[in-house]
Amino acid sequence: MTTLATTPAGPRARRTGPRPRLRDGLRPWLYLLPAAAVLLPLLGYPIYMLGLLSVFDYRQAQVSGGEPTTFVGLGNYATLLGDQRFWSVLGQTVAFAAALVAATLAVGATLAVVLSRAGRVPRLLLSLAAMAAWAAPAMTGSTVWMFLFDADLGLVNQVLGIEGFNWFYDRWVAFGVVGATVVWHSFPFVMVTLYAGIQAVPASVIEAAALDGASVWQSFWKVLVPILRPLITIVVIQSIIWDFKIFTQIYVMTNGGGIAGQNSVLNVYAYQTAFGSSEYGLGSAIGMVMTLILLAVTLLYIRALHRRGESL
């Protein structure tokens, strides 16, 4: 990323040459061509199909050819925006994702600092544990956590001596357990990224702060955080994107949205609408809304990347 942003003097020198302007204007596009050739069919086409489906009345009967497909314009979106359940699930998803981002960041940052100060053996152990969590597939991790919190046979209940306690009965307790699983899955990325950032901070800066009488706490907030700000921004936005799209953990651990659907999030809701109720059109509309929200977040991400390039 840094090498991309800090452009060497090469092109600038060339710009003074006698080459025609048109070719220079074309050049960036030409460089983009290989990436575009892969990304457009792979990303563009599915999104195009998603958008297309979302304006049709497209259910199981239409897919298997029993009934003709009809164009309904923005009908699916109108249905969606008029559905109270959509809004409650959206609100729930945003709140849950926000809590997850905060928790992931807190855990990841704390452990990054611990990692940078720990001795060799503890550092190795912590890294190994984090890498294992990172490497565990979401499906496996969720299933293992679900067993740990099983009402009758779970290790947690047996250790706490509360056999029969159902962790997935109360909405907030269930969100808590699922949230812990998600954080466990995603903190290693934050930890490793920030640890790399901390390693790149010159020791002299920290030393100078210490000489000036700054406590560990102060040197973290006043020295490390400002230096790492661009990195933190990226990690935050990355986490927002991941946590907003959360699916596997909720779907597996709460059996598709919990008691009376109380733990449903947007991605699970879209899946159940599209594939459970065979409302492919309506499901696509939910997918489009999610894509738009995430696109907005991604634009912020790209801006953050730019800023980071400028400041370095």
């Binding site: 061509l33 195009y48 298997s64 492919y280």
Partner: peptide, 21 residues
């Protein structure tokens, strides 16, 4: 570039209604 764009346009045209089995 132009032929690539044309190809894309063709692709879009070919898929102007969702498919059925």
């Amino acid at each position: 570039l132009k032929s690539y764009a044309a190809g894309l346009a063709l692709l879009a045209l070919a898929a102007c209604a969702p498919s059925t089995a």
